[in-house]
């Protein structure tokens, strides 16, 4: 999806900056922004690039580094930690073969931390792109990763 097409769907009002960023980043396989894209958005909304950078740098959803097709976000807040019976963090690092902050060589997976996902009733929980998976066990975690890989091979 080209940026211009995303921009067309939003009014030229600066309050739409975050909505535009969210929408475009979601469309991009690498889930990140390049400088020329941020510049184009700034021009479209007639706001300084510094302001766009300020917003991108503030919200954890946004990235200026390329990320994997599937972004695994691990909640590390208290409710999840209290219900983590299988060492979620080490397990996911082992399954994906990467550490937090890294992306797999094939560009498929990125592992990140996230603040509380608001699914403490289903803790421990993780978020994979837009979807939240709760009440995790080791097997469930493996199944989630396997499903992503299957989708790619299909």
């Amino acid at each position: 999806m080209i940026l211009a097409e995303v921009l067309k769907r939003f009014p030229k009002k600066k309050e739409y900056l975050i909505e535009i960023l969210l929408e475009y980043q979601k469309q991009k396989e690498t889930h990140h922004f390049e400088e020329h894209e941020l510049k184009e958005i700034a021009n479209y909304l007639n706001i300084p690039e510094s302001r766009v950078c300020s917003v991108v740098g503030f919200y954890t959803f946004f990235s200026t580094e390329p990320r994997g097709k599937y972004i695994f976000q691990i909640c590390r807040d208290l409710p999840c930690q209290l219900n983590d019976n299988f060492d979620l963090l080490s397990s996911i690092q082992m399954i994906l073969g990467i550490k937090v902050g890294e992306t797999t060589q094939d560009g498929l997976f990125t592992l990140e931390y996230t603040s509380c996902l608001g699914h403490c009733d289903k803790s421990p929980a993780i978020r994979v792109n837009d979807k939240i998976h709760g009440s995790l066990s080791l097997n469930k975690l493996k199944a989630i990763v396997a499903e992503c890989k299957e989708k790619e091979n299909a």
């Binding site: 009002k13 600066k14 309050e15 900056l17 975050i18 959803f61």
Partner: peptide
């Protein structure tokens, strides 16, 4: 939609965010 920031639950931070700012 928010974009990953706890403080946006604070009413003024929320307003800033609604205005498309940090």
């Amino acid at each position: 939609s928010g974009a990953g920031s706890y403080v946006c639950g604070e009413e003024f931070a929320l307003l800033e965010s609604l205005e498309g700012k940090a």
